[in-house]
């Protein structure tokens, strides 16, 4: 379940990716969806997974909080105008961000993060040319990133229970959805149906 927590952590960082579409990498937290106090509702397989709330944003480096399993958890990430980065695999080491998406990326672009002798790969597998993915009352374009996590990859001190994530992002709304495949091959769909930035 810890990995589910980690997944939520990444997802909420992604949610704040709706700051995309600006031309430079500077970040004014007050003008982004990562503004302190903003919150989102998360759903896993259509079940309410609670809210995530921004509690700190310093030059794009954010801390967000959510409740899970009776406890409050904090996670860190970084949002710039052109990309979203997380510190999941570095366990919070801010000197080692891992790119989750860059909105100007092309199909085939990939980013890698090494954990010991394991290599986590995030690869752009699709970029819509038409509004073809349902999002609430809209259809939107997405950029799809497939994340592959080798068996035995350590996350926060234990082996990852997730082996693949297919992320879908939109340049305006940020995170759209993710199909998460666990090591037992079960698949969950994670969505955000509300957005404080609207």
């Amino acid at each position: 379940m810890k990995n589910f927590k980690t997944l939520l952590a990444v997802l909420l960082i992604v949610l704040m990716g709706a700051v995309a579409c600006e031309d430079d990498e500077t970040v004014d937290p007050e003008k982004t969806i990562g503004k302190v106090g903003n919150y989102w509702g998360m759903y896993v397989d259509n079940n309410d997974a609670g809210d995530v709330t921004i509690t700190q944003n310093i030059d794009g480096n954010i801390i967000a909080s959510f409740s899970y399993d009776g406890s409050t958890h904090n996670v860190e990430g970084k949002i710039t105008s052109n990309g979203i980065y997380d510190y999941v695999y570095s366990n919070g080491d801010r000197s080692k961000p891992f790119t989750l998406v860059k909105f100007d990326a092309k199909v085939g672009d990939k980013w890698e993060y090494n954990v010991g002798d394991k290599k986590v790969v995030r690869k752009v597998v699709k970029k819509s040319t038409t509004d073809d993915v349902e999002y609430g009352f809209y259809y939107v374009k997405t950029i799809d990133v497939e994340e592959t996590i080798p068996t035995g990859t350590m996350v926060n001190g234990s082996s990852s229970e997730i082996k693949k994530i297919l992320w879908k992002f939109n340049h305006k709304f940020g995170f759209i959805e993710a199909d998460v495949t666990k090591t037992d091959n079960s698949v969950s769909k994670v969505t955000s149906l509300t957005n404080a930035g609207d």
């Binding site: 952590a9 801390i63 904090n74 996670v75 860190e76 510190y87 999941v88 570095s90 366990n91 919070g92 080491d93 801010r94 926060n156 001190g157």
Partner: peptide, 9 residues
């Protein structure tokens, strides 16, 4: 080690 919101690294 150093501490982070996620634990330590």
């Amino acid at each position: 080690i150093s501490y982070s919101q996620q634990g330590f690294y």
